[in-house]
């Protein structure tokens, strides 16, 4: 165990030429990464009108159903809207490619690897991943090559032995005080700890923080695949929504049904 009297003396040159450059380079790379990601981002793809109509048809009936227990509109209006929607769902009026011609004709799920739209989404995720991985690998290589085994800084508070593997990575000494931090550990501390600084410099939703991507590698691709890989069968969804509409119609009650009695009671008549 280390003796408090016998201590290491760190050359101030290490502070000026190793500690500060590593920190500075990591900050600057993060800022650079933010702007590169901004450049790489594709503008959102334009969705054709028919597709939007198809996607939003369900929202129409959801809005109608959401208010049905305390509906603002009179019964005749509610019924006509509800039945019109139900009929339209049955006939497939809102389907992107028009009403289905044949019951047996089922749309085939396209392979996500051949579907260009799905590929785009995956490529975008990969590009961001690359922008994250490449500079971090280079920095780590740089530190490993030039500063391997350097002790950079002494923490001003005592720590238990458990922190040894975290703070003294790359130095194989069993006896050194845990407070001394090695160069590689300093890199990792920065890697996970700079997010707060980036948020100050670049604002809340920046893409400079690489440790976030690290936690969920290929998350973007994984998130996109269930949607892109399996196209929604809107025809089936619409058919299911008809049942919901019928159910909501049973729950329907007009908010103004006995408003006279309510107002009169409120005014004490």
């Amino acid at each position: 165990m280390s003796n408090s009297n016998v201590s290491l003396y760190l050359d101030p040159q290490i502070r000026d030429w190793v500690l500060f450059p590593i920190t500075l380079v990591m900050i600057l790379v993060g800022v650079l990464r933010h702007y590169v990601v901004l450049l790489l981002q594709n503008p959102p793809k334009k969705v054709p009108r028919a597709a939007i109509r198809e996607q939003r048809a369900l929202v129409r009936s959801q809005i109608l159903r959401a208010t049905s227990a305390e509906s603002p509109i009179p019964p005749t209006y509610y019924k006509s809207i509800s039945q019109h929607l139900s009929q339209a769902f049955l006939d497939g009026t809102y389907l992107k490619d028009g009403p289905p011609k044949d019951e047996s004709e089922k749309p085939k799920a396209p392979n996500p690897l051949t579907d260009p739209a799905a590929m785009d989404g995956m490529m975008a995720g990969m590009k961001t991943q690359m922008v994250m991985m490449v500079p971090q690998m280079i920095i780590m290589g740089w530190i490993n090559f030039f500063f391997q085994g350097f002790v950079l800084i002494k923490l001003p508070f005592p720590l238990t032995l458990g922190f040894k593997s975290m703070l003294q990575r790359g130095i194989a000494t069993p006896d050194m005080d845990v407070r001394w931090v090695s160069s590689l550990s300093w890199y990792f501390l920065n890697f996970f700890g700079l997010n707060g600084l980036y948020r100050l410099i670049l604002g809340g939703d920046n893409s400079a923080d690489s440790s976030r991507d690290m936690n969920t590698p290929f998350a973007a691709a994984a998130m996109a695949s269930p949607q892109a890989g399996q196209p929604q069968d809107y025809n089936k969804l619409f058919k299911a929504e008809r049942d919901n509409l019928e159910f909501a119609e049973g729950l329907y009650s007009w908010v103004a049904k006995d408003v006279e009695a309510r107002v009169l009671k409120k005014y004490g008549r």
Binding site: P72, P74, V259, E260, V263, K266
Partner: peptide, 22 residues
Amino acid sequence: PLAMKMYLTVVDMTDDDDTDVL
């Protein structure tokens, strides 16, 4: 009749519930 119900709904929605309405 519909207009009357709707006018009363507006009254019901907008009068101040916290104090005595009278």
